[in-house]
Nucleic acid binder design. Sequence first.
DNA 1: TGTAATTACGGGATACGTAAAGATG
DNA 2: CATCTTTACGTATCCCGTAATTACA
Lengths: 299, 299
Amino acid sequence: MDRLTLLHAFVRLVELGTFTAVADEMRVKQSTVSKWIAELEERLGVQLIERTTRTRRVTEAGELFYERARELLSAWESATAEVQEQAPELRGRLRVSVPVVFGRLFVVPRVADFLQRHEAIEVELLYSDRYVNLIEERIDVAIRVGLPEDSSLTSRKLAETGRHLVASPEYVARRGAPERPSDLKEHTCLLHTGLSNGDVWSFGLPGGGEERARVRGRIAANNSEALLYMARRGFGVALLATWLVRDALDAGELVELLPNLTRPPAPICALMPPRRFVHPRVRRFIDFMVDAFAQARLR
Amino acid sequence: MDRLTLLHAFVRLVELGTFTAVADEMRVKQSTVSKWIAELEERLGVQLIERTTRTRRVTEAGELFYERARELLSAWESATAEVQEQAPELRGRLRVSVPVVFGRLFVVPRVADFLQRHEAIEVELLYSDRYVNLIEERIDVAIRVGLPEDSSLTSRKLAETGRHLVASPEYVARRGAPERPSDLKEHTCLLHTGLSNGDVWSFGLPGGGEERARVRGRIAANNSEALLYMARRGFGVALLATWLVRDALDAGELVELLPNLTRPPAPICALMPPRRFVHPRVRRFIDFMVDAFAQARLR
DNA sequence: TGTAATTACGGGATACGTAAAGATG
DNA sequence: CATCTTTACGTATCCCGTAATTACA
């Protein structure tokens, strides 16, 4: 086992107090943390933490070692940070998976900025609205609208997008317009699969508060553009990102429903495969995107 | 990979200059060192060493990181040493493989001293003159006379033992006594297998210098006592440790041959399975034995 | 052309997670 | 008795070594 990881676990155990907390923080199981601490003590030949199932007490040796461990970890941090400043030119290839429409509208310009700043970086853009397997496809970062169902991925929020509840005028003429979220039960809805709570739509009420509706429909897709297409064709009601539906709204191909209710914004996330160590250029890319998205609001 | 191991490899690469030298020192293959350095650079996102197949040059970032890496490694060393001093009571079980005769005469008393000093230590003595598989038998330390053929084991010299060239009086009466090392070619010799150069016996000449003889015989064994028994029974000439043959010499069951030539002493070694990390109690035990054997000469 | 580093690949050790056991207040 | 750690076990991963390839003097 990586000795610095053992130190990290030990330090956090001293600070947080329970194996469970450390495990959650470090994204491993309790049993793993237990083995890590045991291995560290075994290596040192010294008990660091006296523990029963209910109590933990840092030994005298543990107190001493805790200080040293903290120093070591921060020395590693500063050493790596220092050497990375020394050679700030990022290089190598980034494989970035982006949604088709959102990618074209919002990601590409920012990627261009990133490329301009870092001459030696290459970017491979993989357009997809599906939740591709990041590991198999060797993708460094996937940018997606909404939180993924697969929570094993590490995610970071880049921005939020407004959403509109829409349907085609023809559909509304035929089926009527819902007047309250609960009316959606009577409608055919177009569901986005692959997102957490894809079938529960919530709305902010004018007086404050929130109303949720579990919706169902004939069509479900893990692709927003497919839903947009189906909505245009009058197959049902869809809850879609503002920038996705704007043209259709302007053209009169779609009309907005429940316009007096607010829709909670959907997060735009950068997703990474659950690697233990994130490559600097990936981290820097994501930092850059977070920063770039924070500058301007999505319209 | 263990980050501190990567640092160690990098530091030694800077100091030694070639991947091969580092690999030999760290007991891994060149390809492994190559991957280690590549991984370290990959993690940092910085090239540390510009290398072609023929030349290596430490980059500017590498120079800087070298200093930090050295500090980190020595910080780890001192942190572990410090915490181990803090709690010097060793505990746990040591599985020690010892030769039958040498063990009884020289090891057991020293083990007793070690047990007396460390109350919480348990020792399991496994008597064997064979070269047992340390890993399979989960042996922590094996003490052996002579250097093992299997050089994958890490060994540490505890002491040296004098040796005598012996045969039974009956054998000498029948076959005559050798007058020079080269005469041994005409004799039936009793060979110890499992030792490096077990079939090449060398002797120090009175005027200085050394003479080697490649010997052969009908009987070979990886057990000194078997050779002693065969020598007593008159099956040939044996080169055996002083303490092993003393009783038989005193009793007249064996006579010494070539008494005017010196025999290079055989090393007494502590052997460990090639583990990456030696447990403190094992290390301390061996340190203790080295010290204990250094006190008194073997007779 | 010979030496040294890198890359490819296969086998084996190992470290993780799941689940059950154990312990303690 | 409930909660938290440890232990047992199966599996997937990763890491090392062997061998082929590449690169350079």
